[in-house]
Design a protein around this nucleic acid. Structure first.
Length: 420
DNA sequence: TCTGGGGTCCTAGGACCC
DNA sequence: TCTGGGGTCCTAGGACCC
């Protein structure tokens, strides 16, 4: 078995560039929701010292950053671009597993003899059709493919392709690279491993399993096996049933009144229910949380959440009603709230969990109403039709000061071509 | 003024049961 | 004075990922 991992370079920035030639060779940054921090940077932006997750408002006025073009994140655009990349990949691998919006695992087993040429052609096709640059790494396990991909990204001389199939090549690499580069070793585990005398991947691979188990439990053992070339994590083309779903946001300004918080929570519940129906699911557990600004605890810090189990449902109005009740349980006056959300759990296919009670109470008219709402929101954009209780003014909405057009998913925002 | 959002997996420990 | 042992289920919290 041979696994490949293809990863789009600075994906969100590359999507912006695909529609704006002026951005070529310029430093570009895409910000998180609420224009909070930098979550995608082009190579030029990285060179200027902009860090991943850096608070944009703290650095944006520095002189050296005056040429940086920055954008609010535009998820509909990125999601659609991701789908296009996926479509291209289907011509190059019999099995493609999207791992995140900008990364996909590939089954490359059938191409052993011509891998380099094959992956090169694949990169080129993605670049040509979607305008998104990528890197590809491959090896006998997913963890090794991920490492190879990182190597392809870090070393320009590899020209975006890296092969770690050969055990000797891997051994040389393992000796010189920090165990922190491994997929699954994050900032908490790294110091623990260092304390145990494990700094390189080689030391990790050669450590006693019992020792690794003490530090990282079974996850560590699996990782050790994967790095040794023994595959433990398979490719799955069919997405696993999801376990939960959330709609949470930071506010553009603090919320201090119950009425506004209630509007926000109703809005989140509405959106979450919409997502449930779009995926044909019911939820049987609903949670609501609210919290103040965690970076300003001097103002008084409060965070709380409350949840209930309920009859499985995908009905906006039922979910909103539950969410309102939950909010009442945790609301405290006198705080400046910065963030809140609604989370849905215990998901199952719509109708499957029906009990006698819920079948008796099912209302076909209601389903028609919801379907009509979804239809309108699909056609005219999410949030066109919503329960009045979700509020109309909503001036606490997250900031999106530099939002680009949804070039590929909204007809009225499509690019215009001119001829001379 | 301004610091994201949405996921996964694993384990420890409490509640409960016989 | 002395207060079991073993199982299951659930939740909270910690770790990771992009």
């Amino acid at each position: 078995m041979l696994y490949g991992l293809i990863d789009c370079n600075s994906f969100y920035c590359s999507c912006q560039r695909a529609f704006d030639p002026d951005l070529k060779h310029r430093p570009v940054v895409v910000l998180s929701n609420n224009d909070g921090c930098a979550i995608a940077r082009t190579a030029e932006a990285k060179q200027l010292g902009i860090k991943m997750g850096e608070a944009w408002h703290l650095v944006r006025h520095e002189r050296k950053l005056s040429d940086v073009r920055w954008f609010s994140s535009n998820y509909p655009l990125y999601a659609d671009m991701s789908r296009r990349v996926y479509q291209v990949l289907l011509d190059y691998s019999p099995r493609v597993e999207p791992y995140s919006i900008d990364e996909m695992f590939l089954d490359l087993s059938g191409f052993s003899n011509t891998l380099h040429a094959h992956c090169g052609a694949m990169r080129q096709a993605v670049q040509q059709i979607t305008k998104v640059p990528t890197c590809v790494g491959w090896g006998p396990t997913k963890t090794i493919a991920k490492l190879a991909n990182g190597l392809a990204k870090d070393r320009p001389e590899l020209e975006g392709l890296c092969d770690l199939t050969d055990p000797q090549t891997r051994q040389r690499f393992y000796r010189n690279v920090s165990v922190g580069e491994v997929w699954g070793v994050g900032r908490r585990l790294l110091p623990k491993l260092h304390y145990a005398g494990i700094r390189t991947i080689e030391q990790f691979v050669e450590a006693k399993p019992a020792h690794i188990r003490k530090i990282m439990a079974v996850t560590g053992l699996r990782l050790q096996a994967e790095l040794q070339g023994e595959s433990c994590i398979q490719i799955s083309e069919i997405a696993e049933a999801r376990k939960g779903m959330a709609c949470t946001r930071s506010f553009g300004r603090p919320i201090t009144t119950y009425e506004e918080m209630h509007e926000a929570i109703t809005g989140f519940a509405t959106r979450a229910a919409e997502k449930l129906r779009a995926e044909g699911l019911d939820a049987a557990h609903i949670a609501v949380f609210i919290q103040t600004n965690r970076h300003k605890r001097d103002d008084g810090w409060y965070a709380n959440q409350f949840s209930i189990s309920c009859e499985p449902t995908n009905d906006t109005f039922t979910i909103c009603r539950h969410a309102s009740r939950l909010l009442k349980q945790i609301w405290l006056k006198g705080y400046r709230y910065a963030k809140a959300g609604v989370m849905l759990n215990d998901l199952a296919p719509h109708g499957q969990q029906s009990t006698l009670f819920s079948m008796a109470s099912a209302k076909p008219d209601h389903e028609t109403l919801l379907a009509a709402m979804d239809g309108i929101n699909q056609k005219f954009g999410s949030g066109t039709l919503f329960p009045l209780s979700a509020g109309i003014k909503r001036d606490w909405k997250p900031r999106q000061a530099m939002l680009s057009a949804r070039y590929t998913t909204r007809l009225e925002e499509i690019m215009e071509a001119q001829t001379w």
